[in-house]
């Protein structure tokens, strides 16, 4: 498979009143065309900052990408100007977030929010854009899409809003979809719906996915490859089967042993990871 994204030695720092926070500290990984990469880590591990760096959405100041390369479709995203980057964002790569309520504009209808990208990036006229938007909403499983498209975000449930976010993300046929804990705020039955949906869309459209989560179990049936992050660094990277069968890094082993399993046969004492994660400054 062709290389879609290649992140080399990425370093992102935050310059705060209390000193420099090394949020991402020399991270390297890649994503191939059509591949699903899982990034797992706890809060403060740098997993979200890593993907925000890829999207060049780090708030600056205080944040700054201090070194590294982000090669996407053959171009280093850190070397192109903001105008070109805007073209990449939303068109070639899209992102969906944990909280679908705050990432949708509450005063615009769903139609206004989806068609904006279509008209901007793909140069469609309004009629075409609306038709395509309805098509997208149907694709992500929103019932009565023709009517619902004129609704406002608050008229949708949490799971439905996440579907709308996915529809918006897919509007311009991106090659890479970055999902930052998209199911963390959702209930487990709704999470299953969303995971099923993303898997189906991946197979239909053939895009690559980076799925960020703190829940190692979730990736077992979803990812091709997994990287484990801890304190701003990648501590383990392997094929999905190997991470679960043959974890090498003590932190990965710790993560696997500290979560109870649904198919737990006998009640065994959990093996916690002792202590507190270090602060990254």
């Amino acid at each position: 498979m062709a290389r879609l994204l290649d992140v080399r030695d990425l370093e992102t720092r935050f310059y705060t009143q209390d000193g420099i926070v090394h949020a991402v500290n020399g991270v390297s990984f890649h994503v191939d065309e059509g591949e699903t990469l899982g990034i797992v880590g706890e809060s403060g591990s740098g997993k979200s900052v890593t993907v925000l760096s890829i999207m060049r959405l780090i708030p600056s100041p205080p944040g700054k990408i201090t070194s590294g390369e982000i090669i996407f479709e053959g171009r280093d995203l850190l070397k192109i100007d903001e105008e070109e980057m805007r073209e990449v964002r939303g068109n070639r790569m899209a992102m969906i977030f944990q909280d679908p309520m705050t990432s949708l504009n509450p005063v615009l209808t769903i139609e206004q929010q989806i068609t904006e990208a279509l008209e901007l990036h793909l140069g469609m006229n309004h009629q075409q854009a609306r038709r395509r938007a309805i098509e997208l909403l149907k694709m992500v499983g929103i019932p009565a899409a023709e009517q619902r498209i004129d609704n406002y975000p608050h008229q949708f449930s949490g799971g439905m809003r996440q579907r709308v976010m996915i529809a918006m993300g897919l509007a311009c046929n991106p090659r890479l979809l970055i999902a930052d804990e998209p199911t963390t705020a959702l209930d487990v039955t709704i999470q299953a719906q969303i995971v099923e949906l993303v898997k189906r869309l991946r197979d239909e459209i053939g895009m690559a996915i980076i799925w960020i989560t703190h829940d190692l179990s979730l990736l077992a049936g979803l990812a091709d490859r997994i990287i484990v992050m801890y304190a701003g660094q990648v501590v383990e990277s392997a094929q999905t089967a190997d991470i679960y069968r043959n974890p090498r890094h003590p932190y990965t082993i710790g993560l696997l042993q500290s979560i109870p399993r649904l198919d737990e046969k006998r009640r065994e004492r959990l093996e916690p990871i002792e202590g507190v994660a270090p602060r990254s400054h």
Binding site: Q193, E196, S217, Y244
Partner: peptide, 18 residues
């Protein structure tokens, strides 16, 4: 709907999607 941290089990499971 609850995921199990084991790719082999996951591959065989029948999900009931509500």
């Amino acid at each position: 709907a609850v995921p199990i941290p084991d790719p082999e089990i996951e591959a065989q499971r029948q999900r009931i999607i509500l």
